[in-house]
Design a protein around this nucleic acid. Structure first.
Lengths: 256, 256
DNA sequence: GAGTGGTCTAGACCACCTC
DNA sequence: AGGTGGTCTAGACCACTCC
């Protein structure tokens, strides 16, 4: 499945090693690029590392370097201890469209699903209290969810909602309804301003487990605070995306 | 310089290897975390890899893995073939404030500088033509610059300006003036809408060279299109940042 | 010229997933 | 139980930086 169309003039795997006396930097990476270009489709599994080693006439460490490179480029991804897969196209995530996740995904001809990991009332810690402008220790609802696109776990989100804004919201089915829809229809709260903080990082251990990602693989962090029609911060969330899963977009008027 | 306060109970380097029978995953990474927490300051150079190997009783490959982890976390960075350094705090980059680079940096008590790599008129290629809504082959000015914060090269940016909007703009000193200021004062063009596309990736070879980054190290890509008071796309740019150099922020009203 | 990081070889053991 | 990825050892050569 892999052997064809990697090197036009090459006659199978052994020929690849012949190029080793060229400037080798990233050569393996380039081979793997070619490898993807031709025969592999989105979400298809790559051959096992040991198989690729043999195919390319290289060692585990070198191959691994190349794979990690491609991972950093967002072209392939790992599931922890399960193997390497070709990255599907990035979901375009318009930060200011504020579409519910399922709608956003559906509108791009993909399939979304959501799993609630935990939903409970907790006292606000320092960070949350500050973001929401409430007293430390005040009651908030914490909702942790994992979201999938086409079956692949791509997003870990942790919401914190002000209890005084959304009393009893935990009684709704949180895997079926979008929060913003509940806000509007059940609580007459409309999000009028959003504020974001974005940075690229890596998954922490817990998040990695939830997404079945290798600990330390690259992640996109998105922290959001939502303000209602009265300018009050009503909830915030911490999103951690597989970094290859999204491309962020936004369009707005500059301030002042 | 490194030997103190890494392991409270440890009596120097050899003790570190005693912990090797614990779950070792990321142990080296954690050691290096401690290592940073204590005695190293922003932009300070880490000891040479061979020195750290000895200090931690490990091998090159393992150490390198740990360092690459910390790089992915944005805690340290490389200059190509020069060594590893502690990452300075991230610059907060408000996407919608549209502050000139020098002002943004200065307002955070940092020092900015800019270097013009190239500035010339070229025909618009497919991508640029599409972004700017002009004919393929139409004249555009391409300006490539490298920007520094506190002396560190963190940003490679390539602008494309419509020639018909900014005739003769290349005659100005582009390392001293901000483009948006020139737009406003020399051409009476004011940016009224911006549209962004963000994704995390790695540096390509050319960009890496310009920033003195190792090829393949993690990067944040920011593509921007600027629209003037008539709704016309007047310029666009492709920014590639060292991913540890920035934290993006924005605050706006959601659409609709 | 000495030392550095960048790249590579050739193995090994273990935890975990899949069958 | 066999195979997988995750982690690690112990070296090597080269291109480049810095002195």
């Amino acid at each position: 499945m892999l052997s064809s169309s990697i090197e036009p003039t090459g006659d199978d795997a052994t020929s690849l090693t012949h190029t080793a006396d060229l400037p080798v930097t990233g050569l393996k990476g380039r081979l793997l690029n070619h490898l993807e270009a031709a025969p592999l489709h989105a979400s298809q599994r790559l051959p096992s590392e040991r198989e690729m080693i043999e195919r390319f006439g290289t060692t585990r460490v070198t191959l691994r370097d190349a794979l990690l490179q491609l991972e950093a480029e967002g072209r392939i991804y790992r599931e922890n201890r399960r193997g390497w897969f070709v990255s599907p196209p990035r979901l375009r995530y318009d930060l200011l469209a504020c579409l519910p996740f399922h709608e956003m995904v559906q509108s791009q001809q993909r399939v979304a699903s959501t799993e609630v990991l935990a939903a409970q009332e907790v006292p606000a810690d320092e960070v949350i209290a500050q973001r929401l402008g409430i007293a430390r220790g005040a009651g908030v609802y914490r909702i942790t969810r994992v979201r999938r696109i086409d079956g692949r776990r791509v997003l870990h989100v942790c919401h914190h909602l002000r209890r005084d804004c959304f009393p009893g919201i935990l009684d709704f089915d949180l895997s079926a309804h979008s929060l913003t829809t509940l806000y509007l229809h059940q609580y007459a709260i409309r999000i009028r301003r959003v504020s974001f903080e974005l940075a690229s990082s890596v998954f922490d251990a817990e998040t990695a487990v939830a997404l079945n990602a290798a600990p330390g693989s690259p992640a996109q962090r998105i922290t959001r605070i939502n303000f209602d029609q009265n300018g009050r911060a009503v909830d915030c969330d911490d999103e951690h995306w597989r970094h290859d899963a999204i491309e962020l977009t936004l369009s707005a008027a500059p301030q002042r």
